[in-house]
Each structure stands twice: as C-alpha cells, then as structure tokens.
C-alpha cells in the first residue's frame, strides 16, 4: 500500500468543486423554493388572519346591527302597541258613542213610532167614536133631527155678522142646502120660506144630499158655508181632542 498524494489533491479539489456545484444547483434552489413556500404560507396566514379579523369585525358589526334592530323592533312594537291601545280606546269610545247614539236613535224612533201609533190609535179611536156616534145618531128620527137642526141653523144664521152673511149670500150665485137625507117637497118649502125670511130675500137655493153629514144641514155659498151637522160637530170634537193631545205632548 502506498499513499498517492496527487489523488489526495485531486479528490480534495473534486469534493470542493462538488460542494460548490451542489450548493449552486441543489441546496440553494431547494432552500429558495422552501423559503418561498414558507413566505407564501406566511402571507396566506397573514391574509387569513386579516380576513378573519375583518370577518370578526364584520360579525361584531352585524351583532351590533342586530342589537340595534332588535331594540328598534322592540321600540316599534311598543309604539305600535301604544297606538293600537289608543286606537282601540278611540274605536271603543266611538263604538260606545255610536251605540249610545244608536240606542238614543232607536229610543227616539221607538218613541216616535209609539207616538205615531198612539196618534194612529187615537185617530182610529176618534174615527170609531164618530162611526159609533153616527150609528147611534142614525137610529134617531130624521124628522126630529131635521127640526132640531133647522132651529139650530136659524140660531146660527141670526148670529152671523153682516159681512159673513154677504159672503154667504152673493147675489145671483147658487146657495146649496145640503142634508144627510133627501128632503120631501113640504120640507123643502118650509126650508125655502124660513131661509128667505132669515136671509132677507129670495136666493137661488139648490137642495143637495150628502150622507156623510149624518144628520143636520149645511149652507154652502160661493165664499162661505155654514155647517150645522153632526159631521161638523164630531169633527170639531175630534179637533179639540187633538189640540189637547198636542198640548200634553209639548208639556
């Protein structure tokens, strides 16, 4: 065995050259790419951290907005509740008022109906009383009634003033003598003579029949008439009764 110094020198140079070459073509590129990856990863982590911080900030903002919205919602609900309460009270008062008004209107209508019904019933009662009186009077003797009513008519003609008498007896105009039943010729003659005497002169007398008079006689001139019949009397009684009812209602 011998030691070859030239081989030692060559191998030393070889290893040193290899060291430089591997450093140039192996270790430096690999370390560079690892460092680049680490930098990229750190950048990504930094970006992720920034994104996370941003997301957390946004989440906090959203949470605050939710809280504000919740508070706003509560406020709106409370306000709506208050408004609803006020509206309900208003509607309730209005309803109560309307109910009271309706009740008053119904009571008034009821009173009016009752009054109308009362008046109707009273009118009906008056009508019935007139009918009853008419039927009762119809049972009396026509002659007796006629005689009595003629006297009564004469008294009323005597009580007329001159103006009233002139309004009743216009010269040339027809003066109707209306009775409930037809007069016989004797009675007509009697009536003619009596009226000429009372009315001071001859007049254009015309005899007519109106059963609604029930009994009595009426003189119907152009501008006036003298009513002296049961019908007129009953109408006056009925008018008096109505006047009494109106006075009681006003009171």
């Amino acid at each position: 065995m011998r030691f070859d110094w030239s081989t030692l020198a060559l191998q030393t140079v070889n290893v040193l050259v290899l060291l430089w070459l591997l450093r140039r073509f192996l270790f430096r590129p690999v370390r560079a790419i690892i460092a680049a990856r680490q930098a990229s990863a750190e950048t990504l982590l930094a970006d992720a951290a920034a994104t996370r911080a941003q997301a957390e900030a946004q989440a906090a903002d959203i949470a605050r907005q939710q809280e504000r919205m919740a508070a706003e919602g509560q406020r709106i609900i409370a306000e709506a509740r208050r408004e609803a309460e006020a509206e309900r009270a208003t509607i309730l008062a209005q309803a109560q008022h309307e109910v009271a008004a309706s009740r008053d209107a119904a009571l008034a209508a009821l009173a009016r109906e009752r009054e109308a019904m009362r008046l109707g019933l009273e009118g009906e009662a008056r009508h019935l009383s007139v009918i009853i009186a008419s039927r009762l009077l119809g049972r009396l003797s026509a002659k007796a009634i006629e005689s009595a009513l003629l006297e009564s008519l004469l008294r009323r003609l005597d009580a007329l003033s001159d103006d009233e008498r002139e309004a009743l007896t216009v010269p040339g105009a027809e003066l109707q003598v209306v009775t409930a039943e037809p007069l016989d010729p004797a009675s007509r003659t009697t009536w003619t003579q009596t009226l000429e005497r009372v009315l001071h002169g001859q007049h254009n007398l015309h005899f007519a029949v109106d059963p609604s008079l029930i009994g009595g006689v009426e003189l119907r001139g152009t501008h006036a008439r003298v009513r002296n019949s049961w019908q007129a009397d009953l109408e006056r009684v009925a008018q008096e009764l109505e006047k009494d009812d109106e006075r009681l209602a006003v009171a």
């Binding site: 081989t7 030692l8 191998q11």
Partner: peptide
Amino acid sequence: AHIETDAALALI
C-alpha cells in the same frame, strides 16, 4: 475504499 479520498474528505 481508498484512503486518499477519505483523507481528502477529512482534510476538508
């Protein structure tokens, strides 16, 4: 397997 190479390595 030759001592010159090992010596070169150890020298470095």
